[in-house]
Design a protein around this nucleic acid. Structure first.
Lengths: 187, 187
DNA sequence: TATGACATGTAATCTGTTACATGATTAG
DNA sequence: CTAATCATGTAACAGATTACATGTCATA
């Protein structure tokens, strides 16, 4: 069972709230999830695929007149698939591909898999990010001598972005550890 | 004439140095340009398309035995197309789509279009990035109250990344302004 | 002489983009 | 009544992924 990133985005949103295709399109076009296409040609076929895979269930609303409006909700299998995706360890490939997919997993992790799974995800991310950053620094050292100014600066941009990402990860870990301590303390 | 991002990456690399498909694949797989696929199923068809569009020219090497090895070099039209792409103003959509495409343009800008075009690109980037960051901050303020911890932190990650990107842009502008002053001073 | 790196390509499949099409409901 | 918005979809096309296929050259 292979699911493209749009599929996971839809599953995560439907886990939060059952919605129609139109609702989901509005979320993509109006919020910071603009990275995902809001075109009907992407979303409706994607929903159809997820339904065929048994990960979501659609039900046509009947109450409000003749207006056909189909509300989708996530199924038990869909939740299981989503949880599996979120709790998988973060690989070097994941971080090399950029932050966005990992952040999508993280954004859903607390409500789908709970705070302890979220903390595990963050620790896995830190473990993947640390050697990546070291490798980038090494590559930068050897590049510094030969590349033109713009090439060197472009690399530095990626380097700074990765540093920021790692710092964010560490501060998020601290946040979740404090939350865990508080929960532990009140038991 | 529409060219996908892989096409521009290939054009930029060929502008730097005439290369075979295999050479280009090695660059993608071994350097920090891993974001682009190194699969033959992507690169060879892309090269064929660029050649059909008259943007690159391929010539089969004859010197070294029977080993067929085709070297591609960029054509005058290809250089014009590349320059047009690099020097176009940075739109809000460009920055919303993420840093990678803009950075690809920047990485090639100095050798393809010269230092003054590079500085113009950076200023255009700063102009697009500044309102985008303000919009993200506004959205964050309204999100802070309602979202769960993980959703809030995920948004904050994007925010910090954009801040870092803007800071980098400003420091790069300074670098190029100093270069320009030095060149101007020695004339 | 067999293995692995060099070098190029094709075919099936999947997904997303673009553009179009349909019809219901609401506001002016 | 008509225009805009709500709501859903389809069809043609482009591009990437994956897997396969082919053959050369160097070296152990």
């Amino acid at each position: 069972m292979k699911i493209p990133s749009l599929g996971y985005a839809l599953l995560g949103l439907l886990h939060g709230k059952p919605s129609s295709g139109y609702d989901l399109r509005k979320i993509f076009s109006s919020t910071s999830m603009r990275t995902y296409s809001d075109s009907p040609g992407a979303i409706y076929p994607a929903l159809k695929r997820l339904q065929k895979q048994g990960l979501i269930v659609g039900k046509v609303e009947e109450g409000s007149g003749l207006r056909r409006r189909q509300i989708f909700r996530i199924s038990a299998r869909g939740i299981a698939e989503l949880k599996k995706w979120i709790t998988a360890p973060v690989t070097p490939e994941d971080v090399a591909a950029g932050a966005s997919l990992v952040m999508l997993r993280f954004a859903f992790s607390e409500t789908v898999a709970g705070p302890s799974a979220t903390l595990a995800l963050l620790r896995s991310l830190e473990a993947a990010l640390t050697p990546q950053l070291a490798a980038l620094r090494t590559e930068f050292e050897s590049l510094k001598k030969i590349a033109p100014t713009s090439g060197r600066l472009a690399f530095e941009c990626g380097l700074r972005g990765t540093e920021t990402f790692l710092h964010w990860t560490q501060s998020a870990i601290t946040t979740y550890e404090q939350l865990a301590a508080k929960r532990g303390g009140t038991v």
